[in-house]
């Protein structure tokens, strides 16, 4: 029958169309990694006049979720003491480990580290570096501790990229969003 042949032809055409499509398989999973991940925040405190650094660390090697962070140190400092402070930011989910500190230094115009102690009398942070527009960065600086006490040190990395081509970094914490926001326990004794 004429009509039947036409239907058959149509069917063959459709089947051919199905066969000729993308043959990639779902079971070939691409290694899924974030473009960039901060897994580790390392704070190095060196008492002024000495060379020994004490390191305090937050570490979540598999990123957010999954396993809980493996390390979240208490920051223990002496009262009424000046420290040189540096910070290191790492992506330890990659092999080899990626050090993001240099990249932040390169893009200093859109990054700001913010250190906030609660209560404020525990620790005062002074920036020791500046970007091209003379705003602080906070990768290096000094910390002056106050009298003994317990509290928290909030460490933030504010990511402040330009909005619609206009720079927004103004030295204040407000613009942008958090790439790091950690409340370290702070013990001054």
């Amino acid at each position: 029958m004429k009509v039947d042949r036409r239907m058959l032809g149509w069917g063959l055409l459709m089947s051919a169309a199905l066969l000729l499509t993308d043959c990639r398989r779902a079971d070939e999973v691409d290694p899924q990694d974030e473009n960039e991940l901060i897994t580790t925040v390392r704070l190095n405190f060196t008492e002024q006049g000495t060379t020994t650094a004490t390191t305090f660390e937050f570490r979540d090697p598999d990123g957010e979720g999954g396993n809980p962070p493996t390390r979240f140190d208490q920051i223990k400092l002496k009262p009424n003491t000046s420290y040189n402070v540096t910070v290191e930011l790492l992506d330890e989910s990659k092999t080899p480990v990626v050090d993001l500190t240099d990249e932040i230094a390169e893009k200093a115009d859109e990054h700001l580290m913010v250190y906030t102690a609660t209560p404020a009398t525990l620790l005062t942070y002074t920036y020791g570096d500046k970007d091209s527009r003379n705003f602080p960065i906070g990768l290096t600086g000094t910390a002056q501790t106050g009298t003994a006490g317990r509290g928290q040190l909030k460490v933030q990395l504010r990511h402040q990229p330009p909005v619609n081509g206009t720079a927004v970094k103004n030295g204040m914490a407000a613009p942008g969003s958090d790439d790091v926001n950690l409340d370290f326990e702070l013990i001054v004794e």
Binding site: I38, V41, D60, E64, P68, P69, F72, V180, D183
Partner: peptide, 8 residues
Amino acid sequence: ILTVRGAF
């Protein structure tokens, strides 16, 4: 949940 960007 605690992450590098704080607790969510």
